[in-house]
Amino acid sequence: MKDIKAKILSNKLVGRAYYKMALGAPYIARAAKPGQFVQIKCSDGLEPFLRRPFSIHRVNGSIEILYEVVGKGTEILAGKKQGDFVDVLGPLGTGFSLPLTSSLEPRAIIIAGGIGAAPLVYLAEELTKKKIKTIVLIGAKTKDAILCEKDFKKITREVYVSTDDGTYGCHGFVSRLFHNILKTTESRFETIVYVCGPNGMLKCIAEICAERSFECQVSLEEKMACGTGACLGCAVPTKSGNKLACKDGPVFNATSLSW
């Protein structure tokens, strides 16, 4: 973990209010694992006061973040230009655990809800590098909120999309798509499910996984102050007491959480 003054290599609008920013942070790129995040100081002044946490979206010598403009911090970030510098602290937190390539054949199902796609592209890359069969399901409210479809398609052939309003892909929640996929695919695999998205969706996916005894790893989003485990502001209630989203998470095994 280091606090780096990183040069912005690019900052591009990639959809409705979604941006991709590449940051020159070789140390973080080397140390990062899928599911980890960085804390970025969006402003040089006091507004907004705290840093903002962003999942590490991709790693290739530099790091990329994928973000949605939702408030003061991300608005300022969206206005940054190539060549500007920002303070980036990372890599932080505990990310996804990759399945052990044991005797049973593992299969990963990645489920992304909206901006929840952010940490999952890097995960998909790492999974396929390990030759693990990877299926990706992307869900969003509507067509223009479907993110990273092309990126995922470059990584794996099996990418399925659903929208709540039916404007693109299957009509309905991604949990329904998940149900359908499970019905139509073989079950000789040891399935492990990775999911990031809104809380309601995470819970729903976690329930389906519990019924089938699939391991389910969820990446949670919490407001944070420090990101390093010092302030105890991002407590997550679990069956073994409060854990921290920034240190013990943001990725948790779904069965450990007290939803």
Binding site: E47, K223, A225, G233, C234
Partner: peptide, 13 residues
């Protein structure tokens, strides 16, 4: 939770 909240030039905890 929530335990923290950003304010103008500061934070509540």
């Amino acid at each position: 939770m929530p335990r923290i909240c950003e304010t103008a030039s500061g934070m509540l905890n």
